[in-house]
Design a protein around this nucleic acid. Structure first.
Lengths: 193, 193
DNA sequence: GTCTATAAGTCGATAGAC
DNA sequence: GTCTATCGACTTATAGAC
């Protein structure tokens, strides 16, 4: 298979390369020269495609956060049961992990390096997502589909596992995605029954 | 209550301060000048107590990793059932989280900034711990105490939740520790039944 | 769109006075 | 054990040639 980067815009190539390096060493320990070296160009040339190192990070993080918000919106407003909505949310996380493995790895920690409006926007999206998740979990408990759990702690446990899935998936890329979704739904939701 | 740091050696004060800042901004984004400012001294003075910034990180991470290895050794060699050993391991993680909240937050990501022998040592301890954890999980399945789960993925899910517990605990410090242990055992182990 | 050169600042760490 | 002063390397980002 030819290098997938050949089909992408120069800017998208830079974003993908940066995501991979930020994942490996963190935002602060990755220099513009590091990104340029991987792109086989000089650091100064990067600035013809992106405005700043900070802009790279915020594009990566806000794109992922917005995709989760959009997914939540669709699932929340669909006409299936609450427990099925929870299943679909777990499946959404698995699919995002498969599609954006490097960028999604930045969500748990690297947002602290965002600045100004970007960090505010990111935290707004994240906090609203977590509230919506808790609300659905609570609704499923009221539907008697889940046991009498501590909502906040259970929500936290589920989202923690999903946040770290990129790490497991990176070592198990051969895994069938649909099977992985079913297994995670079982582990994280029906495990709580 | 007087400042707890008053009872500690100057070196331990520096380690605690560094752990707090490394947690907040990451190892790379935290400068020796940042640590010194929090200690109300000059950066150069830190070097009378510690050899380097790198030495701070390796002391913090290897102390935690060794404590987990020691805990695993005791639990593994005790004479209770496999499922009870798993319960005790979850309780160990909860206790470590309560006792070393800042330093434990560095375990998931900041080890990548270790160098030389320190990173080798850390990864050896971590990998052996995870192998032991998987072995116990498998034994509990054979004992018919757990369902027919994907060992590797279930192990991963449990450890992911435990790795992120420091974040939950920081916002819920009032929580009774013994109650938290029981709730996590229920969520992470008996949820899988 | 890529390059060289460089500005302006921060980094970890050391030397040596007190 | 703490300070001031400083070294040499590295940082993000820009100016301007091609």
């Amino acid at each position: 298979m030819p290098n997938k980067n050949l089909m992408l815009s120069r800017k998208q190539q830079i974003l993908n390369t940066a995501a991979r390096l930020f994942r490996k060493r963190g935002y602060s320990a990755t220099s513009m020269r590091d990104i340029a070296r991987e792109m086989q160009m000089e650091a100064a040339s990067l600035y013809n495609h992106i405005n700043s190192k900070q802009a790279i990070l915020s594009e990566l993080l806000l794109h992922i956060a917005q995709a989760f918000t959009d997914g939540m919106f669709e699932i929340k407003n669909s006409s299936v049961s609450n427990i099925e909505k929870l299943e679909q949310l777990v499946a959404l996380h698995v699919q995002m992990t498969v599609d954006y493995t490097d960028a999604i790895s930045l969500i748990p920690n690297e947002w602290v390096h965002l600045e100004g409006d970007a960090i505010k926007h990111f935290l707004n999206l994240r906090d609203q997502y977590e509230k919506d998740f808790n609300t659905l979990l609570e609704a499923a408990v009221k539907d008697k589909k889940l046991g009498d759990i501590d909502i906040d702690l259970a929500s936290f446990s589920i989202l923690s596992s999903l946040r770290w899935l990129y790490s497991w998936y990176s070592k198990n890329r051969h895994t069938d995605v649909e099977k992985l979704k079913k297994e995670m739904i079982r582990n994280l939701i029906y495990g709580l029954k």
